[in-house]
C-alpha cells in the first residue's frame, strides 16, 4: 500500500497479488503433491547403488537435478508480477542469488518428515542415498531445513508468497535498481502477511519465516563451498559434464 489506498483496496490488491503468485507457483512447481503420494522409498539395494557410485557421477546427477529444478524457478520468476519489468541485470542477479534458495523452500513440498526422505530421481530418498557426494554435513543441514519447514505446515499459497519474497530479496549485491526490487519485495511480504492473517495462522509465523532466510543463505554458502572443494579435485568433470546452466549460476 502507498498509504493513500483504502483498506478495502489494499485487501483487494493483496488478494490479487497472492492469487497471481499462487497460480505461477502451481504452474511451475515441477511436482504435484498428489502425484508424489503414490511414490515409494528406495529399497536398500537401490540405496547401495547410489552409495557405490563414484563421487563425480553422483555430483553430476545432483547437478542435473538441481538444474532441472532451476528451470522451473526461472519460469516462476518470469510469472511474478513486476519481475520482468526489472532490468535484465537485476533479473539475473536475483536468480543467481535466489534460485537455489527457492528450490530449498520448495523442497518441503517433496519431503516426507515421517521418515526423513525427499523425492529424488523417481523415489523417496533418505540422507544415506547422498553419501557418495562426500558432503554429509551439507546433506544433513538440507534435510534438517526441510524438516523444519515442514513443521510449519505451510499451505501452497503461503509457500508461493514466501518463495517470491525470497527471490525478490533487495539486499543482493550488484542490483542496479535496489529500490524497485525493494518495492516488489515489500508488496509480496505484505501479501504474505495478509494471507497468513486470512488463514488464521499463528502470529509468530511471519517472523519464523524471516528467520528461515538466514538459514537459506547459510545452506547456499555451504553448497558453494562444497562445489569449490569438489571442483578443485575434479575440474574436468565440472567443465565437461556439469550442465551449463548450473555452471553459470554456481561455478562462474
Amino acid at each position: 500500500s502507498n498509504g493513500d489506498a483504502s483498506p478495502t483496496a489494499t485487501t483487494a490488491a493483496h488478494d490479487h497479488l497472492a492469487q497471481i503468485i499462487s497460480k505461477s507457483h502451481l504452474e511451475t512447481c515441477q511436482y504435484l503433491r498428489e502425484e508424489l503420494q503414490e511414490m515409494s522409498c528406495f529399497l536398500q539395494e537401490e540405496v547401495e547403488k547410489f552409495q557405490n557410485k563414484p563421487q563425480e557421477a553422483m555430483w553430476q546427477l545432483c547437478a542435473v537435478k538441481i538444474t532441472d529444478a532451476i528451470q522451473y524457478v526461472v519460469e516462476f520468476a518470469k510469472r511474478i508480477d513486476g519481475f520482468m519489468n526489472l532490468c535484465q541485470n537485476d533479473q539475473i542477479v536475483l536468480l543467481k542469488a535466489g534460485s537455489l534458495e527457492v528450490i530449498l523452500v520448495r523442497m518441503c513440498r517433496v519431503f516426507d518428515p515421517q521418515n526423513n526422505t525427499v523425492y529424488f530421481d523417481g523415489k523417496f530418498a533418505g540422507p544415506d542415498v547422498f553419501k557418495s557426494l562426500g558432503c554429509d554435513d551439507l546433506i544433513a543441514s538440507v534435510f534438517d531445513f526441510a524438516k523444519s519447514m515442514c513443521s510449519l505446515h505451510l499451505e501452497e499459497e503461503e509457500i508461493a508468497l514466501f518463495s517470491a519474497s525470497v527471490l525478490l530479496s533487495a539486499d543482493r549485491s550488484w542490483l542496479r535498481d535496489k529500490l524497485q526490487v525493494e518495492r516488489l519485495q515489500q508488496k509480496t511480504e505484505s501479501a504474505l502477511q495478509h494471507v497468513l492473517q486470512k488463514n488464521h495462522r499463528d502470529d509468530g509465523l511471519f517472523e519464523k519465516l524471516r528467520t528461515k532466510v538466514s538459514a537459506l543463505r547459510s545452506l547456499c554458502a555451504l553448497h558453494s563451498q562444497k562445489l569449490s572443494a569438489f571442483r578443485a579435485v575434479y575440474p574436468d568433470t565440472v567443465r565437461t559434464l556439469f550442465p551449463p546452466l548450473y555452471k553459470e549460476l554456481f561455478a562462474a
Binding site: 515441477q30 532441472d68 528451470q71 526461472v74 535484465q88 551449463p244
Partner: peptide, 20 residues
C-alpha cells in the same frame, strides 16, 4: 550477457515448464 548466456536465453524465451 555472454557470462549468463543460458539464463539470458531462458528469460527471453516464452517457454513453459512443460517444454523444458
Amino acid at each position: 550477457k555472454e557470462k549468463h548466456k543460458i539464463l539470458h536465453q531462458l528469460l527471453q524465451n516464452s517457454t513453459s515448464p512443460g517444454d523444458l
